[in-house]
Design a protein around this nucleic acid. Sequence first.
DNA 1: CACCAGGCAAGTA
DNA 2: TACTTGCATGGT
Length: 220
Amino acid sequence: MDHREELLKIYKLLDGYFGDLHWWPADEPFEVMIGAILTQNTAWTNVEMAIKALRKRRLLTPAALLQIPEDDLAEIIRASGYYHLKAARLKAFVRFLMDHYSGNIAAMKTEGLPLLREKLLSVRGVGPETADSILLYACQKPIFVCDAYTRRVLLRHALIDEATDYDGIQSLVMASLPNDMNLFNQFHALIVVVAKTFCRKRPRCTDCPLAILNMGRKIC
DNA sequence: CACCAGGCAAGTA
DNA sequence: TACTTGCATGGT
């Protein structure tokens, strides 16, 4: 069985085990974009506190974030960690929205996927994972978001090696599955959930829905 | 108390 | 190009 078949099998096993998870579906797109930046190398619980603080002050719009001084913004998002850095990144991202789309999210969504991805990557503070999170979860484009969990799970199943970079992981996943926005959304959620519930606790790996794939191979 | 969390960019050789 | 370092809070 080659890597692409095995990846499809992983998807089916996880999907059958956990069912529909539908992540980040209902939030306002702009809030999703802000969350994507705030969650960089940070626990989501901290991000929630920062977003709550922003909402309380009615700052979850491009126009409002454009106005507020960077130092004030930093204090408000303090709980998300790296707060000076992230305040600068939020400002850079909002300036990008204004410069290219006059702050109009709907206009941004009409852009084609490859061009929009290039544009997002040109923003200071937006790397591949943040760009892809924005594309998938806020703009509803069919692209797979790779993260530390994806890397960990694929490494343990020997589908990639230490040298495989972001684009390499993304290419493998996207070549293995149907090109479907909802499926990429679901698969990313499944990987995060399985990694958090099983991979983190090594003794429980035998309970993992993917344990059936581990036969004859050292994994956890 | 030590360790970690859904990255990214700047600096160094 | 390849490797290292800074950024920082709140939860376990």
